[in-house]
Design a protein around this nucleic acid. Structure first.
Lengths: 229, 229, 229, 229
DNA sequence: GATGAATGAGTCTTCATTCAT
DNA sequence: TATGAATGAAGACTCATTCAT
């Protein structure tokens, strides 16, 4: 009757709620690791469950199935990061050149160089097999990230920091592709590449950034000194 | 009675032989189409067989299994093309700039812009799941194609057409990555991209080529100091 | 609130557990029957499952595959019996002649004259096709049963009950072979043998035992002379 | 019309006949080796054909199928030998003891110690799977060989060489079983038996023969008593 | 007679998902 | 909420047998 010590027997609704959220998080966490490591198909739901400390049936109490878990994983990681970055951009005042460099490096540090890279590669690999998932990723990650870059670039143009660019999408590609290629490479052929010839590094990423940003500001030619650095 | 041409003396071992060769080709053809369209795992051997106009067991008369079929497909397409290109390079005398442009456009025309693109994407997607297959592709396609480019680039440097480049692999990446990205894109998210913002075209490929080749030869010009790097 | 017996605290993990144990037994039981009746290769896993009242996939929850099931069957029957017999021997004090007779008759009653005989025949029949299985049987059944007999025989010799025997293995063969032959016969040609000429019976088994045991003790007679050999 | 030089184009019927017989023999020969070595199921018809120097379809021109080939193999080997032995017995005049020893040793030399042993083991192993085959073997090999022995034994009794025996079948078993066990052992567990404890040898076979024959004639000695039984 | 390409029934095995407890 | 036993659809691969040539 005394609930003083009985908290474990009859947890408050909120407590359950918290537990529920935790469970969700634990499952997402577990799934993230396995998906990134082994890919989507090769990851068994049983593995996810066990890694989350629950049993086979439990994930179905929180998610509609394997695909839904992947969706949740993407949301909890990539899309979250994207949200942060978007917020950062909204508040930002200052050099777009600096901003772009910062965004790219953040993405590298928090995604490209982490296990999350495997998630991006996974989406590419499975896109054809799971159209609904692919659309979700396309709309929520790809489109949004491109939109973000586009906005920054156009802001830069409007404010005179960048010269007008005839094909914004090409610029976005030029910025993002190397990073994406690296993520894909790491999770496909990197293991066979003893000399690591194909591996991107942060160093190389920065070189690419310098190059593209230099080109964007190059029009400044007469305007000022040597940009890039 | 006199069988003038002796057609009966050769009871067509050739006929069967021919059929056998054709079968191999037909199966490879069928497999190519299905692999490119649906990926490796999603393609059932039964589908391949039916698409080739035979039944389930027949492909096993010609190949050791699904992986072997994929290997044969890669050999019959990508590796063949690569061989042609290698031969072309061996005999070539002339501007390396022209040669590189020609190679890249050939690859675009014969692979990048065809269904074969799906094969490249497939290998990336399944590399993690089929290590033996991945190694084969890595050694026979990736390594060889990079070696080819490296040779051409170094020739160009030796003969003074290109300026010395500190990181050949980075240049190779710069040349190949856009094309590869395009192939991957086409077979993953392109279908969701109504505005086709992410799509490479031959036009864009040429732009990239111009850019990189210009950078490679730029130093040779008397024009000015050290660009890029 | 006070749950007197606490029946709710243990929400029947035991219930499932019990079911699980039962399942294993049911599958082994079903497999035993089918293996003995139809042999190993001719028994489909689907049959086993159905005979156990479950569906195709279920046996895989309990065993690694068909061979593993057979192993389990052998363990649960022959090896278990062997264990009992070994225990019986360890504790035994008394006439080895009596002991050997008892062991042989036990084996006859619990194996030779039951469906388990089919299991022994099966192992002989499939030994060449499943080496790993055969080695298991060889090591766990054949070697152990021979070792057991050898120990008893040598004990008998040491204690003067049996005369020294130049070739223990030959004696073991003489004791075991008739029983084994019978088991093999029952599950191969017995069905075609209307007159049952080739069939061993318990009676004939006892005759053989008498014969061999008599020979083993015969030397004890004052007659000496040249026994057997 | 002139067949002078046309012998190859139009061979005489007899020539074809000969060829046909040869083919049959070659296939039987090839099948024998493979059956003995690998068992019935594990031997592919394709293997037999190739070993016989023909192709897959050819055996079907001479036999109704795999089972029929095995039948032919048994006929051409075991049943043939049996026929010889039967003939030998018919003409024989002299000691039955000597005759039995001779028969057993012949069987050992020509079957037990040769690859043909594998055939006997095969029949035991597959009897349950191929009833029609098993009946054939039972009737043509087992029954006949037992009848042969029985006749010799009874002749011996009639002529006073052997003492009357209450259970002729038991005696036949005693004579044949060791040899059969050896054949089975060689093709099942012998390979796992490093110490070769279970292996019969010609030596051991002779010992058994001595033993049984001694028992059969023992009564004839002045010693009288009631032996064996 | 001989070939050998093709057939297709047969079986093991995996795993996402369900549901009684 | 959590369990975990059970399901059953799906798919790769084998090989005896057939038959057009």
């Amino acid at each position: 009757m005394n609930t003083g010590s009985g908290s474990m027997e009859a947890p408050s609704p909120r407590r359950w709620q918290r537990r529920k959220d935790e469970r969700t998080g634990e499952i997402i966490e577990a799934a993230l690791g396995l998906f990134c490591e082994k890919g989507f198909s090769a990851t068994k739901l049983d593995d996810i469950a066990r890694a989350a400390g629950v049993t086979k049936g439990t994930p179905y109490l929180y998610f509609d199935g394997k695909e839904a878990i992947l969706k949740a994983v993407v949301r909890a990681t990539l899309i979250d990061r994207l949200g942060e970055i978007e917020a950062e951009c909204r508040d930002y005042r200052g050099s777009r050149t600096v901003l772009i460099r910062r965004l790219m490096l953040k993405w590298w540090d928090e995604v490209g160089s982490t296990e999350l890279a495997g998630l991006c590669k996974l989406m590419v690999a499975e896109a054809a097999n799971f159209p609904e998932l692919a659309r979700f990723y396309h709309d929520e990650v790809i489109v949004r990230s491109r939109a973000l870059m586009r906005a920054v670039l156009l802001d830069g143009v409007r404010e005179g920091e960048f010269r007008p660019m005839p094909d914004t999408d090409a610029v976005i590609d030029a910025l993002q592709a190397p990073l994406l290629m690296n993520m894909i490479w790491q999770h496909s052929f990197a293991r066979f590449d003893e000399s690591a010839t194909g591996s991107y590094t942060k160093q190389r990423l920065e070189t690419t950034l310098d190059l593209v940003l230099a080109a964007l500001t190059a029009a400044g030619t007469t305007r000022q000194g040597n940009p890039t650095t």
